[in-house]
Write a protein that binds this DNA or RNA. Structure first.
Lengths: 324, 324
DNA sequence: CTGTTAGCGCTTTCAA
DNA sequence: TTGAAAGCGCTAACAG
């Protein structure tokens, strides 16, 4: 009545325990006749090997935690989708961990590594948790660096910022602005979007303004309101991410500013989240799938062959919409 | 150098193995002085207990698989968010499984139960997989029934359909329509949205038309095009879900049909997915969080205290927008 | 190529 | 209240 185990299979097939294990893990090391006997017994008993017991021996749970603020955000759910796909391809499974951006939850999930609940972690975190991260742990960090460096995967934020500035300028916007956040608590890669933008406008002597507030934004409406009040002469604006860009466009509409005639807008992310948004947003598209693939591959490399710190930067591209 | 185990702790604390185990699992069964000794040793060694080994003994992985078509859909990612929250509250973890709606992947993930990779499954499936489901397995099905009944969680689709019909009619639409799909392969609860709608219009002698196509919809544009060509006299339409409703509204706009003046539209789901969609959609809101909570609670009940089939139907409510 | 055996780290009787 | 010991189901080293 109880689920059969390997011993039951061995008995039924009239072979030793090890032979059954070999049929399952290294079938080529078993002679065809014995293999057949064992496979027959497995089928007859409806045997499934117990992953828990295997893991106790092999020490690899084949579980990976994806720690992120909230799966309920299109960018993250798209990322999670691809991560799960690539993990599954390598016979790994994805543990979903919503941190809500809270430091204690981020740490809490990182501890799963110690309890052997997972073999590795892909982390998208926004708090000061450097003490819990170390370069010999199987951790991939997304879009950020830690004191003790770990492998980091990002899109080419610097280039993205440059492309945005270039595009705005070349489509006729003379007075530009960057709208986004700054984060003094952690070493986020997102800042390079601004730096890339600045590099370009400075190199070309373009009139520009950097409009930022400390992350996270508490009051979007006030933030955007002030922007338009103080800088209503801008003709092109590069916004830190698509979500904020859309809010900015909606705000502009209430002020009767025509997009793109009076104001050109470029966002950053490029996830197909809102087929219904109008005007279709011009944006710097992150290679979501490639980033997921790179994250998974780097992590599994670490899990299976030991620590190795890399810095993986993937190319972005301009996705033309109707907002420029 | 290797991570310390329970034996190391026992040695350091000068107690037996069992005592350490007791300190961790049933501290009240250990005398305070010994407990203190053990706790000290645990801290000094930086010991974390190994979940894998524990599971081999206790047989509960405390992992739950959430099988769904794609996390990359706002309704599912919202659901997953809450599921993970409630699971975590009970010290369970969520394994994310994207099936892409493919039968073989659905089955593949269901098999994880047999390999003891997970202790239970919450399944949102769309294929003929009844042979792999049985009422004594720890499975919760979302929005559908199986041959061998398992606990099913749904929103009150029937009532939702009635409310939609009633609302459309009472706001002045005389000629109504239902737009959606039918599924002959599986026993989906979604059909009750249509049935509730029909119940109401028939009971009140309201002019109506049921416009459906076999699930899944291959060509949305053709589907909606035909609807408007053949039934352009409709004044109110209840659409099977918000996503389809939005597509229908966009289609109507291209035909210069004014929403809600010429056509009132009500959707179903009510997930805050598109703060930017206009006109704001009137919809039947599913109690996403309550459904997640109920699913988790029912599943853990089954995992921890044995099989029990329930039918859990949660109340819906009208969420007023600008499309009616 | 195959059988036997010693653990993996923990929980849980069973005696003491 | 505690320690000793017997597994949980599997893998892998070893001997044959």
């Amino acid at each position: 009545m109880m689920a059969p185990n390997m011993k039951d299979v061995a008995k039924r097939a009239g072979v030793g325990l090890g032979t059954v294990s070999r049929v399952i893990n290294t079938p080529h090391k078993v002679s065809p006749p014995t293999r057949l006997k064992v496979e027959k017994a497995i089928k007859e008993l409806g045997y499934y090997s117990n992953e828990i017991a295997r893991t106790l021996k092999t020490r690899n749970t084949r579980n990976v935690a994806l720690v992120l603020p909230s799966i309920w955000h299109p960018f993250f759910s798209g990322f999670a989708y691809y991560i799960e796909n690539y993990l599954d391809e390598q016979n790994y499974r994805l543990m979903l961990c919503n941190s809500d951006g809270k430091p204690d939850k981020e740490v809490y999930y990182l501890e799963m590594l110690k309890e052997k609940k997972v073999s590795g972690i892909i982390a998208i975190t926004y708090n000061q948790i450097d003490d819990h991260i170390s370069s010999d742990l199987p951790i991939i960090s997304f879009d950020r660096h830690f004191k003790d460096d770990v492998t980091c995967v990002t899109s080419d934020n610097l280039k993205g910022g440059e492309i945005a500035a270039k595009t705005l300028h070349e489509t006729g916007a003379k007075k530009l602005a960057y709208v986004g956040t700054i984060n003094n608590r952690i070493d986020s890669e997102v800042k390079y979007r601004r730096i890339g933008f600045e590099n370009y406008v400075k190199a070309h002597g373009i009139d520009h303004f950097i409009y930022t507030v400390e992350d996270p934004i508490r009051d979007y409406d006030a933030f955007l309101d002030t922007f338009f009040k103080r800088h209503n002469d801008r003709e092109g604006v590069f916004v830190e991410n698509d979500n904020l860009a859309k809010k900015l466009i909606k705000k502009a509409e209430t002020l009767n500013i025509k997009i793109p005639e009076q104001l050109k807008v470029i966002g950053y992310d490029g996830v197909e989240e809102t087929e219904f948004f109008e005007p279709k947003l011009t944006t710097i598209k992150q290679p979501l799938e490639a980033m997921a693939k790179a994250s998974v591959e780097a992590l599994i490399r670490i899990i299976e062959t030991g620590p190795k710190v890399e810095r993986i930067v993937l190319p972005v591209e301009l996705k033309q919409g109707k907002s420029t």
